[in-house]
Simulated assay, not measured.
Amino acid sequence: MCIMAMAWAAHPRWRLILIGNRDEYHARPAAPLARWTDHPGLIAGRDLQSGGTWVGVSDHRRAAIVTNLRGYGPPDPQRASRGTLMTDLLAGQGGYADVQQAQYADFNPFNLILIDRDRADFLTNRPDPMRIALTPGLYGLSNGTLDAPWPKTLALKAALLGWLTQGADDPADLFEALAQRTLPNAGMPPATPSDAPDEAAASPIFIRNPIYGTRCSTIIAIAQDGAGLIMERRFGPQGEVTGESHEPFRWPDA
């Protein structure tokens, strides 16, 4: 993912609301949001080049989202895929499933938020591996530090806050916030350029570009009773909608 906003344990109805956009080369193949047959209980889209995912949930009461971290140069193809880290965390098995033992230096620079039962953590591996427990609240994340006041991050957080305070009824309404293609006149633009050469130095929430742009928008909504829904809306090179998937799930004993 390249931008997300999250409300964690901050609303009487919703335990978790997480929204975000995945920006990627349109030529990179991906499978739509679905339940994975090789990892029972895992629900996510799938990167068909490396085999992992960028955001997802599992019936094991885990949810996770990853972004790359700019300012460290292009990714090293010899390092492990960040999607593998995501898959192991969501499935609760594999070499990187244990957040206390995982070797984060194996990966290219990343930011990751993991919800594991009643705990939320922010994980990163640059400049040094770090794990920070998140208290209940509203968070925003793009390709910089957590809650960096980039214009698009501030705008998405504001949109999520507005939804939460004005009814918080239908999570699908948040697709509109993820579709914004203009930047607000607020915040501080990134101090370092993007590692993706075709991405604008200052980009809106939704990037319309035939080479590198927003590929999909994802919404995760989990109520206080554990009833959950993950939704994905997919886009083509011209920003046109190409498909949409909704997958319900339930977290037991939430």
Rank of each mutant, 00 (worst) to 15 (best):
P12N: 03
T87A: 15
L138G: 06
P129Q: 04
Q100E: 14
P29E: 11
A148Y: 08
I113F: 06
R46T: 15
R62A: 09
R13M: 00
W8K: 01
H39V: 12
P32W: 15
V66Y: 12
I65H: 04
G20W: 02
P29L: 03
L48R: 15
H26E: 12
G52H: 06
P12C: 01
L33M: 06
P40F: 07
S142A: 12
W150N: 03
D88M: 03
T84N: 14
A91L: 09
R28E: 14
D147Q: 13
R22G: 14
D38K: 14
F122I: 03
Q103I: 09
A63V: 04
G41N: 11
Y72D: 07
T67S: 06
L16T: 07
P109H: 00
N108L: 01
T67F: 04
P136W: 04
L114W: 05
G51I: 13
N143C: 13
A10Y: 00
D106Y: 00
I43S: 11
G83F: 02
S58I: 02
R15A: 14
A80I: 10
Y104K: 05
P77R: 12
S142N: 11
T135D: 07
R22T: 15
I113P: 10
G41H: 14
G20Q: 02
G52S: 05
V66C: 11
R70S: 10
Q103K: 13
G56N: 11
L42K: 10
Q93P: 02
R28K: 14
L134I: 02
I115Q: 01
A10R: 00
M130L: 07
G41L: 07
T145M: 03
T145W: 06
P151K: 04
N21H: 10
L134Q: 05
D147K: 11
R70M: 08
S50Y: 07
L69N: 13
D59G: 04
G95P: 08
Q100A: 10
R35M: 09
E24N: 07
L114F: 03
Y72V: 14
D116N: 08
G94Y: 08
G71H: 06
A102G: 05
I113D: 14
D116K: 06
L138R: 06
L141E: 05
L16F: 04
P29F: 04
A31F: 12
D106F: 02
R126A: 03
P12M: 00
W36T: 03
L90S: 14
I43H: 05
A27T: 15
D121L: 03
N68Q: 04
M130H: 07
R46A: 13
R70T: 07
W36L: 01
S58W: 00
P77D: 14
A148T: 09
T153Y: 03
L141G: 05
Q78C: 13
T37S: 08
D121F: 00
L90A: 15
W54A: 02
K152F: 10
R70A: 15
G137T: 08
Y25L: 15
L154D: 10
A102N: 05
G52V: 01
G83K: 09
L16I: 07
P40R: 13
